[in-house]
Write a protein that binds this DNA or RNA. Structure first.
Length: 316
DNA sequence: CACGATCATGGGCGTAGGCC
DNA sequence: GGCCTACGCCCATGATCGTG
């Protein structure tokens, strides 16, 4: 996996029209974390199915039915006979906080619903989880003998254990200078290979999974929620002057980051041409590195063309 | 929306002081 | 002198904030 990933990164680096990170810090952290992920994650080549197509039928309160097709990143059956659905995330965990999880997990719960509908698998035999690739779960032994866990960005997990390593190593007969050198080396390598055996065995890492609870009640509610949402969308598309309606109900605000950068409609060529809007300067990384900025305006050309087609279909 | 930074909170751990 | 408990400091964690 690491080899494939490295090739992919190299190709991306050499592409003048590549997508950019907002800052160098974000880029470096992201790539270092994923380097570590691909070096240390074992793949189940035999049991697992990747990009598995699934189909769910949802029904609104009005009785309208809608078909959803999705692709499960990875699916396999574990040793207890549970069907495990995995979704890989490379984003930061802040957007997967407790409060946001119900919404974020709709995707996985819809997959679970699909597998239940098609194969009759009971919900208590379905497990669903996000594999947060930037992070790992660090297991460490406390001084009271109990094991505890801590979630850390992969590229600096040893550095984050520095204080704990200090207290543990101070209890040995090693002299303070040696201790500091050892810890510095471990942090620089981001592993504990150079540390004494009895220290090393007090730490180990695993993938960081966010487990999603799968139960019938939640999924019944989700079914209706999505069905009703579809009804709303269908009703919206039936409005006669949709474009006029939207420009009045949801006026474009160029100071709103969502409106300006993320909204499929307001970022489309169709809308920009209509409003005579010019593209913003590309992000900071372009300014001090190479000549990629020259291509900034062309960056999303293909995407924009696709978006444009859809926008013309819907509004044009 | 997703990011890093910042802030508040709670638990672990070391230490001081009391007791046997 | 050894053990136990209370207290305070420090660190990790999670929520919130400001920004592109």
């Amino acid at each position: 996996m690491y080899k494939q990933w490295s090739k992919f990164v190299a190709k991306w680096e050499s592409d003048p029209a590549r997508y950019m990170f907002d800052t160098v810090k974000i880029k470096d952290g992201y790539i270092k974390n994923l380097n570590h992920y691909f070096k240390h994650t074992k793949v189940m080549t035999d049991k697992a199915v990747n990009e598995k197509p699934v189909r769910a039928i949802v029904e609104s309160d009005k009785g309208n039915k809608y078909v959803f097709v999705g692709y499960v990143d990875t699916e396999y059956t574990d040793e207890d006979g549970n069907l495990v659905l995995v979704d890989y995330k490379t984003s930061s965990k802040s957007s997967f906080s407790k409060a946001k999880l119900p919404e974020k997990s709709m995707q996985l719960r819809l997959y679970a619903m699909a597998e239940h509908q098609v194969h009759g698998i009971p919900y208590d035999k379905i497990k669903a989880r996000f594999d947060m690739a930037k992070y790992c779960t660090v297991h460490f032994k406390q001084e009271n003998g109990k094991w505890k866990t801590s979630v850390q960005e992969r590229y600096q997990w040893v550095e984050k254990m520095r204080k704990k390593l200090e207290t543990k190593l101070k209890k040995t007969d090693l002299d303070p200078i040696t201790i500091e050198e050892m810890i510095d080396t471990a942090c620089a390598n981001n592993d504990m290979d150079n540390l004494p055996e009895d220290i090393r065995e007090q730490f180990y890492i695993e993938n960081y999974f966010i487990e999603i609870d799968i139960n019938e009640d939640d999924i019944k509610e989700l079914n209706k929620h999505i069905g009703n949402k579809c009804d709303e969308i269908v009703a919206l598309e039936d409005i006669e002057d949709l474009e006029g309606y939207l420009s009045y109900t949801y006026p474009y605000d160029p100071d709103n980051y969502y409106d300006k950068k993320l909204c499929a409609y307001h970022t489309s060529d169709y809308f920009k041409k209509r409003e005579n809007l010019v593209d913003d300067l590309p992000p900071e990384e372009n300014l001090d590195e190479d000549t990629a900025w020259l291509f900034g305006g062309e960056m999303d050309k293909q995407q924009d063309d696709e978006t444009d087609e859809i926008m013309n279909m819907l509004f044009g």
